[in-house]
Amino acid sequence: MRIIKLFFIVAILLVMFISPAGADQKPPPRIEPRAVVRMMDNRENVVLINVLSFLECMDSRITASLCIVCEEAGEKASMLPQDRNAKLVFYGGNTPVEADCEIIREAQRKGFANLYILKGGLTAWKRAGYEVESVNRIPRVLWPALKPGNLKRWLNSAPGALMIDLRSPAAYQSNHITGAVNMPLVSLHRTYKDLPWDRPLLVIDVDGSRSFLVASYLRRKGFENVHRLEGGMAAWQAWNKGVAP
C-alpha cells in the first residue's frame, strides 16, 4: 500500500515537471528589427506574426505577416507553419507583447524552438525605416477627440450615448468608466453589428493610440456619430483619478 502511495506521488511529480502544460516556459527573447531583416536577407525561414487585432493587422502589418490575435490562438493555431524549425517573430504595437500571449504559448506547446518577440513592435519596425503593407486599409475619418475633462458635459448633451471600452475583458473588469460596455477590439470586426446605429458612440482604448482607427472603421461602416476619448483610459484616470463621470 505504501509503495502504491509512493508511486502515485512520484507519478504526479513527474507529470508536473515533465508535461509541457506544467513546464515553466521561458519567455521568447526580444529581437531588434534589424536582426529580423538580416535573417530574412539570409533566406532563413522567418514567419512574422502580428498579434494585434484583425482590424489593425489588415490596416498595417509587416509584409506577409500572419494575423493571429493573442486571444484567438485556439482558432488560428492551424495557421502556424508546419516546419518546427521555422523562426517565429511575434509583434504587436508599441507596447511589448506579453510573454503569456496565448499564441506564443501555443507555439511553445507545438514545439517551435525559435521564437522571438520583435522589440518595439510595429512601431520600431517603421521607425527603422522598413516597409509595411496594408491589405485592407481603413481610410481615416478626421474628427476631433473628446478630452477627459469634457466627457461629463458631452454625456449630458448626448443622453443616449454609448461608451465602448475596447480593452480586454480583464482590463475592463479591473476598472472602467461607469456606463461603458466592453467590446474588445480583437473581435470588433465581428461584433460591431451589435452596436446601435442611432446612438452616439464613444470609443475608449488603453491610451488613445488605437481608438482613432476604430472610430474611422465604425464611421466607414455607417455609424455617423462616433467619438473617441483622447488619451484613452490612461488619460481619463490621470484626469479624474478613477472617479466616475
Binding site: 512601431t123 521607425r127 481610410p139 493610440s209
Partner: peptide, 19 residues
C-alpha cells in the same frame, strides 16, 4: 513622412490629411 508620428503610430497616408 516615414519618420512622422502620424505614419508610425497611426499609419496615415497622404490622402488622410489631404482629403
Amino acid at each position: 513622412f516615414r519618420k512622422d508620428v502620424h505614419y508610425i503610430k497611426q499609419n496615415f497616408q497622404c490622402q488622410d490629411c489631404h482629403q
